[in-house]
C-alpha cells in the first residue's frame, strides 16, 4: 500500500536545522515543522498546536518535546500528543535521515 510506496522528499543536509531547533516545510495543504533534538533525532509534525493553532516550529525544543510559543503547551515530538493535563494531537509525518540528509515522506503533500 502507500507505506511500501513512499516517495521521500529531500529537505537538505541535517545541519540546515540547528540542534534543539526547527524549520518549516511549506506544502499546498499545510505547513510542516521539522524538529532536530540535541541528540540529532528528527521529527516532523504539522505546524499547528492542537490548542490554538500556534506555530510549534517557533517553540523551545527540549528532550523529545517542544513548548508551543503561544501558551506553553508541551507537545511530544514522537507522536504529536499534548503532554500533562492537556489533550490534543498534532499530526505527525514519517521522516528519515540518510547520509546526513533529511527526507520527508511525500504523503504530506497528499490530501488529508
Amino acid at each position: 500500500m502507500r507505506n511500501e510506496n513512499r516517495f521521500w522528499f529531500d529537505l537538505g543536509p541535517m545541519d540546515s536545522i540547528p540542534k534543539r531547533g526547527a524549520r518549516t516545510v511549506r506544502t499546498p495543504r499545510r505547513e510542516i515543522a521539522v524538529f532536530r533534538t540535541a541528540s540529532d533525532e528528527f521529527f516532523a509534525l504539522e505546524n499547528r498546536c492542537p490548542h490554538k493553532g500556534g506555530p510549534l516550529s517557533e517553540g523551545i525544543v527540549h528532550g523529545r518535546k517542544v513548548a508551543c510559543p503561544l501558551h506553553n503547551w508541551i507537545i511530544d515530538l514522537e507522536n504529536g500528543e499534548a503532554t500533562g493535563a492537556d489533550q490534543g494531537c498534532a499530526r505527525n509525518f514519517p521522516i528519515k535521515l540518510k547520509n546526513g540528509r533529511i527526507y520527508l515522506d511525500m504523503g504530506v503533500a497528499a490530501p488529508a
Binding site: 537538505g12 540546515s16 524549520r23 516545510v25 506544502t27 511525500m106
Partner: peptide, 13 residues
C-alpha cells in the same frame, strides 16, 4: 537568515 525562511517549499506534484 534561516530563521526567517522555510526549509523547503513543496510545490503541487
Amino acid at each position: 537568515s534561516r530563521e526567517f525562511t522555510p526549509l523547503a517549499v513543496l510545490m503541487p506534484v
